[in-house]
Design a protein around this nucleic acid. Structure first.
Length: 314
DNA sequence: GAACCGTGGGT
DNA sequence: TACCCAAGGTT
């Protein structure tokens, strides 16, 4: 039992299915949700005790970071800060340090800021309203929908990279979705959203899990796919992606790499770090200074008198 | 819309 | 080895 809510089966116990006024819905729903009931991973943020805060923390950490690397950090985070107010009471630098090597450390800062806003504006409770979630730092369209859906069972189209790929293949018949989310994709996601709120929330989690475990970017496992028989891409002979190349992100030699090295030194140090210690991480002084300035501008690093630096106390 | 923002594992 | 990719958000 890994899923947060019960499967809304229409089984023989149903009084009279023919009497339902609502349309049948997509033929994709039932197979995908049934598959999810059987194969969903037992992830800590899916357990009831995770609560909305646990769901929200997991969503921040999972933005561009794989599940396997999130798991240990998530557990320590929730043990240390079981409620938003607990995190809000800490220095932001502590969030950055606890973030460890998950990457994109601005997410840690934003999660801290979101916890503070929740404490101030929402009485310490993660809001369930999509607009209220969207107003929090670090929460965009996807995360707002995910928290509302996964934590509160609300009816929202949850359109992440997994779902976009599943829809691209199963419905549109292409190998990959466009580089950026399009209005057509949002329209499709809304059209496919089950009417019933509980079913919609399960569909959101199930379609995402299908993309993560079966309908993967590479080496898709169609033989394990519950909708393989209906998949437009597969039925078309799985044509290769033709559009513009999916832009890869260079990393070596970029400011990002320098920032990462600088912040690693500050994370591992407790207390102020002298300039000389930071100078050692990168040979090129201009780029090094630019990276450090960027970290300060982002609020990830606090400059002190005498050319010393530390993670931010405020 | 494009560019930027980390990190590590799989192939 | 080099490249691809991973539950995005902000500017």
């Amino acid at each position: 039992m890994t899923a947060p809510t019960k499967p809304p089966h229409t089984g023989p116990a149903d009084p009279d299915p023919a009497a339902e006024s609502a349309p049948a819905g997509s033929p994709l729903h039932a197979p995908v949700i049934d598959w999810f009931d059987e194969h969903a991973r037992d992830l800590p943020w899916r357990r009831p005790e995770a609560g909305a805060w646990g769901v929200m923390v997991s969503e921040f950490m999972l933005q561009q970071t794989p599940v396997s690397r999130v798991l240990p950090v998530y557990e320590r985070w929730l043990a240390r800060w079981p409620r938003p107010a607990d995190l809000a009471a800490e220095a932001p630098g502590e969030a950055v340090r606890a973030w460890g090597r998950l990457g994109y450390p601005r997410r840690a800062l934003r999660l801290h800021g979101a916890a503070a806003a929740i404490t101030e504006r929402h009485g310490g409770d993660v809001p369930s309203d999509h607009a209220a979630l969207l107003a929090l730092p670090g929460i965009g369209e996807y995360t707002a929908a995910a928290v509302a859906s996964f934590a509160y069972g609300r009816r929202h189209a949850v359109l992440d990279t997994n779902v976009r790929r599943v829809f691209a293949r199963a419905v549109t018949g292409v190998q990959y979705p466009p580089n950026a989310t399009t209005a057509a994709e949002r329209r499709l996601a809304r059209a496919l959203l089950p009417e019933d709120e509980t079913t919609a929330a399960r569909w959101a989690a199930a379609s995402m899990e299908l993309g993560a475990l079966v309908c993967t970017a590479k080496n898709e496992a169609c033989h394990r796919c519950p909708i393989a028989a209906q998949c437009a891409w597969r039925l078309a002979g799985k044509p290769a992606h033709d559009g513009p190349p999916r832009r890869g992100q260079t990393y070596a030699g970029t400011d990002r790499q320098v920032r990462g090295r600088l912040l690693a030194v500050l994370r591992e140090a407790h207390g102020p770090v002298p300039q000389a210690a930071l100078d050692r991480v990168w040979h090129e002084p201009v780029q090094r200074a630019r990276a450090l300035d960027g970290l300060v501008a982002d609020g990830l690093v606090e400059p002190l008198a005498g050319g010393r630096y530390r993670l931010p106390l405020s």
